[in-house]
Amino acid sequence: MTFQSIVLPMSEDDPRSKTFTYEGHDIITLKKEFEREYTIPDPQTAQEVIGYYARRIAEAVKLPAQFAVLAPKVREFFEQKAFGHAVDLNDHAIVKAMSTAVAHSVCVDVFKKALQALTIEEQTPQLLEPARLLSTCQPFPWSRPVWEGQKCIFNLVPCDNDFEREFAKFLDNAKDVTAFAKLPRAFGFTIEYTDTSTNLRNYEPDFVAIDKSGVQWLLESKGQENVDVLRKDAAAIRWCENATNLTEKQWKYLKIPQKEFEALQPTCLGDLKALSPVLLG
């Protein structure tokens, strides 16, 4: 495991971070009844600090069972690398330096980046099981908006919001769409992607559709966008590329921003190409 880290200062922490103030308030009047200041005791051994950091790192990279493996690596990091030269972890000054907020931030960040690079590996796409039909999805309760679609295998299209309902209505009425479906969570279809913090996440696309030419579409109706949307788009595009290569059926991805959809007022799937979404093919 290769580490890239700043050299930690061998100085004591800010004394203000070693205390906290507790205030007691009356639950009815909210009047403050008393105030007490507590001092957080310093760790006495390096092993206490190492154990704490190892647990935080394991939580950060979602590998809680790897504490026993991480702890020796954390010890090696502080003993050989963190301070720019080898140090004696039995030295109380070193223990204090290991306990600073800076040391905590640097240690967890260094290990998180190194481990995430090792735990997430892109693999060669392959078909692991036969195609799974939407008709195998078990019935499930739904209390949000629905659309009574004619081209959908479900008797009601389960929508998460009003825009999805409007989009389901559009697909149902589009002359170049032969069939469509909202992908319910109960069906369990997800696409893996890494977020901006390089955590492995699962993305759940909104709709699938088939047009008259036989092209199969993965459709994402998007209201608000966050920092991970582009990563989800990229993952969906890769999925469509892989699905096309592995199944010999053409898949395309289309993202439909709500504002642009409402401004365009499309009547068929082909009209959506006039938008400026992420589009495959």
Rank of each mutant, 00 (worst) to 15 (best):
S11D: 12
Y253I: 03
W217N: 00
K62L: 10
P205M: 02
K249H: 13
E35G: 09
E48P: 00
K252C: 02
E79R: 11
P205A: 07
V102F: 12
S11I: 15
L133H: 14
N155F: 09
D13T: 14
D206P: 00
P64G: 01
V49W: 00
T45C: 04
V278C: 07
T45G: 03
T136H: 09
V208K: 07
T45V: 11
A54W: 00
L30F: 10
A114Y: 07
A168M: 08
R55T: 01
Y38S: 07
R165H: 08
F187G: 02
Y203K: 04
V108R: 01
Q116G: 11
Q265D: 11
L8K: 09
P130F: 05
P130Y: 04
T29N: 11
W142R: 02
E33I: 13
F67V: 11
L200W: 04
T244L: 10
A103L: 04
P139C: 07
F187N: 00
D195G: 04
V110N: 03
A68T: 11
I237K: 12
L264M: 12
F187T: 01
I28C: 06
P9R: 10
N245P: 13
Q66F: 12
D228I: 01
L133C: 09
Q150D: 14
D162P: 05
A181V: 06
A174E: 05
K96W: 10
L200A: 05
Y193P: 00
E79A: 14
K113R: 15
M1T: 06
E122W: 08
V49Q: 00
L171F: 13
T124Y: 09
V177Q: 04
F261I: 05
L156P: 05
N202G: 09
F187E: 02
T136S: 08
S99W: 01
E241K: 15
W251H: 06
T194K: 07
G149N: 08
P64C: 03
T136P: 03
E12K: 13
G84A: 13
L63N: 00
G281K: 13
G188I: 01
D109A: 12
A46F: 02
R231F: 03
D162K: 15
Q250I: 13
D271C: 06
T39L: 14
K249A: 11
A243F: 07
A101L: 14
A58P: 00
C240P: 01
